[in-house]
Write a protein that binds this DNA or RNA. Sequence first.
DNA 1: ATCAGAATAGGACATATGTCCTAGTACGCG
DNA 2: CGCGTACTAGGACATATGTCCTATTCTGAT
Lengths: 225, 225
Amino acid sequence: MALKEGIAQYVRRFGLADMLDETALAALRLMRYGKGDLIIRSGDDVDAVLFVVEGEAKAYNSLDNGQRVLAAFYQPLDIIGEAELFSSQRYALSVEAMTSAVCLRLGVDTILAGAKPDCRLLSYICGRLGSKLTDRFKADSINLRYTVETRLAMYLLASAGDKGFCHAGLGDIADFIGCSYRQLSRVVRAFRGKGILDNIRGTLVVRDGGALELLADDLYTHTKQ
Amino acid sequence: MALKEGIAQYVRRFGLADMLDETALAALRLMRYGKGDLIIRSGDDVDAVLFVVEGEAKAYNSLDNGQRVLAAFYQPLDIIGEAELFSSQRYALSVEAMTSAVCLRLGVDTILAGAKPDCRLLSYICGRLGSKLTDRFKADSINLRYTVETRLAMYLLASAGDKGFCHAGLGDIADFIGCSYRQLSRVVRAFRGKGILDNIRGTLVVRDGGALELLADDLYTHTKQ
DNA sequence: ATCAGAATAGGACATATGTCCTAGTACGCG
DNA sequence: CGCGTACTAGGACATATGTCCTATTCTGAT
């Protein structure tokens, strides 16, 4: 099996034969990017995974409030796009080259063809880990960039859902959205005053889900897509 | 193949035969927990993965400043412990039952025995995803719970490392640690005034790594374990 | 029923932080 | 070289938020 010269040198340097079989190695494609080029675009269909072999890149997402959250800096031999591989149809983040960069591209078809019935537990675990990673990144972006009002609204919409109530204690919610019990207590009081929420014996009951969605500042409708 | 009655009913209810082969199914063990019981303890050796089949649980970690960060709420059919499966020797979080709960336990030996050479790419991807998840959780815990000073110190210790400098622009660093450019600029100025940092033509140069470690408030030494 | 600890609630005060603005410097392109 | 854009830097002001405290209610164990 003869790889192209450029690909072969990276495969040797990074020991990629240790993780890729011959079919996958033969399917690698060399991609070059200039500084500032988009390597993948948030929202595009998931069609490949990329191994960074030269240069540096960054993954980020923009929020509705105009702010940006930077998820990761990449260097060789980081992987781009593996989080969405088994868990999503769309890339969750944009990745941009910070220097000129080189990646080896491996198409999703090749990876999925190699995911045999013997590997179904690992495929499942990959899918769960990928979902956890993207969900956690989304939640933390909100927790870092929005007020506690918006964060509580988002948390309630996600966890109360259709049943309209939520058993978690305020201390646990504060630790989950990353604020103090005191500030959460203020916001719960404000929501109670506006008729959005009641707390009945340790349970938060949603009285006005529409108002929560407004407070969530369009974040909720985006998340549900 | 005859599973125990209790296990068989959960396997049927959740379709676990779709992801587990007969060897793995035979290795499942039923675990019962009371409310408040520790299901896994942060720092313990990774010896199993658990499928939640009844009840609810929460994963959390405590920080050196006495605050706590809650990583996830679990319900059926969430998995506990899979993030550390291929990426760590130790569980990164403690998981506690919030109600009485039932889990199906699958020992790591069984999973690793099933991870054949055909599956080595998936194993590798699982390992990378698991690392990303635990690393990202750690970074975000710090970003949610510590001042920008500590966050910048931690970021610099991680990214400048032994080479003592760091090319990322201040805008990107602000987006990565989740603060405004203005506040980051204040902190950089303060560090410059204390002789800890210089910025030379877009590069941050560390002048006093020891001072950074002190500012990192013992977080750095913990992370390096 | 009683008690201790956990959870909830809110006041007072301080500050870490963000927004908005102006100004200066660096860099890339034509 | 000149210009436009991106990046850095800091002032002024406002506020979201956390710490620390006291008080009340709830829950589980004896």
